[in-house]
Design a protein around this nucleic acid. Structure first.
Lengths: 157, 157
DNA sequence: TTTTTTGCAAATACTTTGCATAACG
DNA sequence: CGTTATGCAAAGTATTTGCAAAAAA
């Protein structure tokens, strides 16, 4: 699903501004990669983005795509879904919610009876049958925020 | 963080019952693997579980751990967090929430102003500084529920 | 012109599979 | 006993890294 063209234009302006602010160069690869991610409402993996970018720029390599995706994430222009690396398992079958640290990947449970009472909105019915509803809060965990006081977080894998 | 011993016992009963119901054998490996995941409130990856199980049963192999984790998930005894396989990227920076299909991994956005208004509970402050709050609804998407009418979903990678 | 970024290729990490043997019910 | 599960080793994917050449500011 593509977003409206003027929205995309606005996103690209935002993109250029963020790059400049951080002294990062605006290469065509970078712009195209951002455009692909920003223009889609499904959530592509790296290879899907790679293929899409290749249509317009056949020489790009997959590692450039990865490098730029992580860079865009560091710049706050895109996000990742779920865990950054491997699969994680959850054996807590009580109602609970998650806090995820953007820096170190820590995931831990918290409880909230208010969140437990959330109902699945009717708009979701057109997507499928919802069974579990959980809230995810992303941020920086205490351990990482201590670290970053010493040395500003350079989030790289 | 370990859960209380009687809770664990109850979980193990639940485990044995579920295995029997589905005609799956209760091997010591399987029981230990379940116990590890069920007893932790952080969300270990396969290798972490593997190491923990090895302490008690030094012969287990990593592939047995994986096989059993997926099995336990199929049985509904544990869950996985985030995407099952690769990293996915999200370029939608508007407030939004996610629907995730347990069968095919489809992830798509939906909007809800009610969910957008959720506040970070004070209990979370002890975990870290929350920045983004999103709701995740897991279930079966329409495409998969059609498929499963023909042939009951055998969810394997 | 200086620094950053790219593409390539090779390396690493994570996860799955085939098969003979061992264990469960 | 018959079937299912295990361990091993080898194969697949996914992702990262080092480096010389190319491109941006």
């Amino acid at each position: 699903m593509k977003s409206k063209p003027d929205e995309l234009k606005q996103k690209m302006d935002c993109f250029r501004a963020a790059l400049q602010r951080r002294g990062v160069k605006a290469t065509p690869q970078r712009a195209l990669i951002f455009q692909e991610v920003a223009g889609l409402e499904n959530h592509p993996d790296a290879v899907t983005i790679y293929k899409a970018v290749r249509e317009k720029l056949p020489m790009v390599s997959l590692d450039t795509v990865y490098r730029n995706l992580w860079l865009l994430q560091d710049l706050g222009l895109i996000r990742i879904l779920g865990a950054r690396d491997r699969v994680r398992f959850d054996g807590n079958m009580k109602a609970h919610h998650h806090f995820v640290c953007k820096a170190c990947g820590l995931m831990c449970d918290f409880y909230s009876s208010a969140f437990d009472r959330l109902k699945i909105p009717s708009a979701v019915k057109s997507l499928g049958a919802g069974e579990i509803i959980q809230v995810e809060i992303k941020g920086i965990c205490v351990a990482c925020s201590k670290k970053s006081k010493i040395k500003p977080a350079k989030i790289s894998r």
